[in-house]
Design a protein around this nucleic acid. Structure first.
Length: 108
DNA sequence: ATGCTGACCGAGC
DNA sequence: CGCTCGGCCAGCA
């Protein structure tokens, strides 16, 4: 079980309509400061198809840069299809869609 | 083994 | 309020 595997395992558990930030995943894996490593791990994304990297966004709710899935617009459509709300700024409504495994529910 | 890089985040100016 | 700097972690040359 490597740090990398933890990231994939964590991200894979993200339900539809929910999103998590790199820092959140990093915190779960060990140190919240490892957010960079998390991003790098997802960048390789060896489990592409099993790991919904598109559900992983910034703390601001903004999508990751240099999106590799085909474009931010595509990711937005994909997330919207899953039930994730978006703001006028084009960011994810993390206020409602931030995934909290411990509580199993989003912030009201 | 060492150094650089990167899909980040927080604090400072 | 916007930009810049530093710091941590893992992967690769």
């Amino acid at each position: 079980m490597s740090f990398n595997d933890k990231v994939y395992e964590f991200v894979r558990q993200i339900p539809e309509g929910k999103v998590a930030s790199y820092g959140q995943i990093a915190f779960m894996t060990g140190s919240w400061r490892a957010s960079r490593a998390v991003g790098y791990a997802l960048h390789r994304n060896p489990y592409q198809g099993k790991v919904p990297c598109h559900r992983v966004v910034f703390k601001d709710g903004r999508l990751a840069t240099g999106f590799v899935f085909g474009g931010k617009d595509v990711q937005r459509q994909l997330l919207e299809s899953e039930g994730v709300e978006f703001t006028a700024d084009g960011r994810v409504a993390m206020d409602k869609c931030c995934w909290q495994p411990d509580q199993g529910c989003c912030c009201p």
